[in-house]
């Protein structure tokens, strides 16, 4: 086994950090290590946390972490912020609220840019989850910000998905992209000391009735005030209950299979794209096809079929 893989399995912070960088950069050195660590994964409870900006996700994660740590669980946190489509750069600011956790050896926090196309999750998130899992984390929280494809993607990674709602102004639920509300395994009404809590709960309840009527588990709606640590213990209990439920009903296997499927598709897509757009391989053909499409000699479908034909022959 590779040295870095051994170190990751032993929980070495620096090795974990470095392997994540390699995976994020699609470095070939990461591939071998990922193979080495895969058999050691599957022990962590993966929690996805999503909600609009300003819903207090980071503070909530901080509070959840405090309780998980009291239960002597090791915690990994992945905080994802959007990458600028213009520059490819990103401002990763979620760490600010978690700095005090960072001094705890049992907590590992990593900030990531979405990097991927169309605001979706970068495929490297799957790798980071695997790495943290293999390194012995008992709980991994994946936080996504904003309202976009990334939120919907979270469900494929997480065993338990939390959607955070804030009462007041009445726009919180509406601003969540269609589809986001339905992914929740647990709804969290955070900042529940504000006006409009009952209205928010009522709105969610009406949604829950629609989307969960055929299931035997009713999606719970929890109320928290993360800045005061209120309702957090109850939330943790509910999170653990959900995991037990997944195990009891064997849904966990289906859920994990869904994740591996998504990951597999991502890897294939990525490799295919790399192959097609690689300078030494098909890049020239692609450029030629683009010229032809521009001058109306060929339509995009025909061009795509021809490029794929070269690979599949």
């Amino acid at each position: 086994m590779n040295d870095i893989a051994k170190k990751v399995l032993s929980g070495d912070q620096r090795a974990i950090a470095r392997l994540i960088t390699l995976a994020e950069n699609n470095d070939s050195a990461a591939t071998k290590v990922m193979a080495d660590i895969h058999p050691h994964t599957g022990n962590a409870h993966i929690i996805g946390i999503t909600g609009v900006m300003g819903s207090g996700k980071s503070t909530l994660i901080c509070e959840l972490t405090r309780i998980f740590r009291k239960q002597r669980k090791k915690v990994g946190i992945i905080a994802i912020d959007p990458t600028s489509p213009f520059s490819g750069g990103a401002l990763l600011g979620d760490r600010v609220r978690m700095m005090e956790l960072a001094m705890d050896d049992g907590v590992f926090i990593r900030s990531m840019g979405t990097r991927g196309m169309l605001g979706g999750l970068t495929s490297a998130v799957y790798d980071v989850v695997e790495i943290l899992d293999a390194s012995g984390k008992d709980v991994i929280m994946v936080e996504t910000v904003g309202v976009g494809q990334a939120e919907v993607d979270v469900i494929k990674i997480a065993d338990t998905t939390l959607v955070i709602i804030v009462p007041g102004l009445g726009d919180s639920i509406q601003t969540l992209k269609a589809g986001v509300m339905e992914i929740a395994d647990i709804y969290v009404v955070n900042k529940a000391d504000r006006q409009g809590v009952q209205q928010a709960v009522a709105e969610i309840e009406s949604l829950v009735d629609i989307s969960c009527s055929e299931k035997d588990r009713k999606t719970p709606i929890m109320q928290t005030i993360s800045k005061d640590g209120k309702g957090i213990e109850e939330l943790v209990k509910e999170i653990i209950n959900h995991f037990k439920y997944l195990e009891k009903t064997k849904e966990i296997e289906a859920q994990r299979r869904l994740r591996y499927e998504a990951e597999l598709i991502e890897i294939i897509k990525k490799s295919l794209m790399n192959f097609i757009f690689d300078e030494s391989k098909l890049k020239n053909t692609v450029e030629k096809k683009l010229d032809q499409i521009s001058s109306k000699e060929v339509d995009p479908y025909t061009a795509a079929n021809e490029i794929l034909g070269k690979i599949l022959k």
Binding site: T83, S84, F86, S87, G88, G89, A90, L91, L92, G93, R95, V96, M99, S111, G113
Partner: peptide, 10 residues
């Protein structure tokens, strides 16, 4: 960020 870097702020 505008120069394409990933910036983590503490």
């Amino acid at each position: 960020r505008d120069a394409g870097m990933e910036v983590v702020y503490t």
